[in-house]
Design a protein around this nucleic acid. Structure first.
Lengths: 237, 237
DNA sequence: GTGCAAAAAATTGTATACAATTTAGCGCCT
DNA sequence: AGGCGCTAAATTGTATACAATTTTTTGCAC
């Protein structure tokens, strides 16, 4: 099993092949938290790692910066994004703003096959919650996001789908930084509730549950300013 | 007077200076419809035009492709995006989904100064509607978009603001392709109505007016498939 | 040992060079 | 005249080379 659930329906970007693969690989590493926020991503290192020139490495990094997963600072290089608390709040505000609408749209268009796929995703997610180990944890993170992404896919709007991809990926970073309960799966049953509401065509309830779900994730965050002390502050008292 | 209203609050991208400027220049050209959809943007030409190497030209084009304003096809080059009718529908669906939420958020946070700026934007827009000539038309297009962008800026959410920038820019392309009444200003008074509702704190009314406004713009579109015949079809009857 | 300054090393910014692919032109055949 | 295949030109994909900037190291004074 590899990156798996990209089988949703990738926009088929059509641009250069090389940089694309690198971008995707790095993105996966960031989203699955194998790369910690703030990590330096030097062009030479990235290029060397994938056996390509700096040109492609740079293009990949550049692409990731447009998605907000990497921040490139002029003349200093690229780093895995380190979203500020304020940025974190805005990411979740955006999700609250957008996801009910996506859900509503998805509810109008969903067909039995898609509903089945959604449920399938859910049991997969449930299975991973049970399993133990780093690898399962990573897969669980991905699966949890894939639920939201699948809804966006069902909504049939590619633009919103891409936007959600960005938001979900960035959410992963935020949770990595500010999440408290290590179990990111706290919302697994909530996914089930949303599907149930969807199945009985109760759109309003589904939207309410979605908002509740997002709020729940956000409630697990500790968004006080500079929680990681700056080394000086850490020893000042 | 130059590109003017970038004074809103540009996210200050921080990446490379060179490519940025080129990207912005080309984006302006696309949004103001000096570059028609489908126009080929060869890397050499772009580079030559701005006196930089292909490297920077390519980076700029790449950046624009992430915004959906340029479509780059592998081994074939970059073209000013030519959104399909379906894509056009999705762009406006996204706006319907997102703009009421942004407006609501803006209404909660707006202060008198911002309200004044918004009104200022409106009179500026009104002035341009009256003027005649290509240059005024372009400025009017920009001003019309700036209204929506300013609301996003007031909402205080940088992520939604950037998303709206993308949507507004792409809308301009859609209107260029499928718009019927040449006057894109048909919705000028509607902007005023929205501000009026905003001023009397009637959020629901404002949202309703916004939806009406977007629907109004969309209603001016002729989204039948391949309205521009393919040269063969054009002479077949 | 600490602090500062200059030099060296490393890294990014940009241009150029070469390889791969597509597009256009040309001749030839039917 | 019209279509087919080949060659040449143009264009993109990728790597490398050089310039500019930042970071680290080194050396010296205190």
């Amino acid at each position: 099993m590899d990156s798996s659930a990209d089988g949703l329906l990738t926009p088929s970007d059509s641009s250069e092949t090389g940089a694309q693969q690198i971008r995707d690989a790095i993105r996966d590493a960031i989203v699955e938290r194998r790369l910690a926020p703030g990590t330096k991503l030097s062009e030479s290192d990235v290029g060397g790692l994938f056996n390509v020139s700096r040109t492609l490495a740079r293009a990949a990094l550049q692409a990731l910066s447009y998605e907000g997963l990497v921040s490139v600072e002029k003349n200093r290089g690229a780093f895995v994004a380190y979203p500020s608390p304020e940025e974190a709040r805005q990411i979740f505000a955006a999700r609250r703003l957008v996801e009910p609408g996506i859900l509503k749209s998805a509810a109008e268009r969903i067909n039995p096959v898609q509903l089945e796929q959604l449920k399938q995703l859910l049991v997969e997610e449930g299975r991973l919650v049970g399993e133990r180990g780093q690898s399962a944890r990573r897969a669980e993170i991905k699966a949890s996001g894939d639920f939201h992404l699948m809804l966006a896919s069902i909504s049939g709007n590619l633009i919103m789908q891409r936007f959600m991809e960005e938001l979900v990926a960035r959410s992963s970073l935020v949770i990595a930084l500010y999440g408290q309960s290590s179990a990111s799966s706290c919302g697994h049953s909530e996914h089930a509730d949303i599907i149930a509401a969807l199945e009985r065509k109760d759109v309003d309830a589904a939207c309410g549950l979605m908002l509740h779900h997002i709020a729940h994730i956000e409630a697990d965050l500790d968004l006080r300013e500079h929680r990681g002390f700056g080394l000086k502050e850490a020893f000042e008292r």
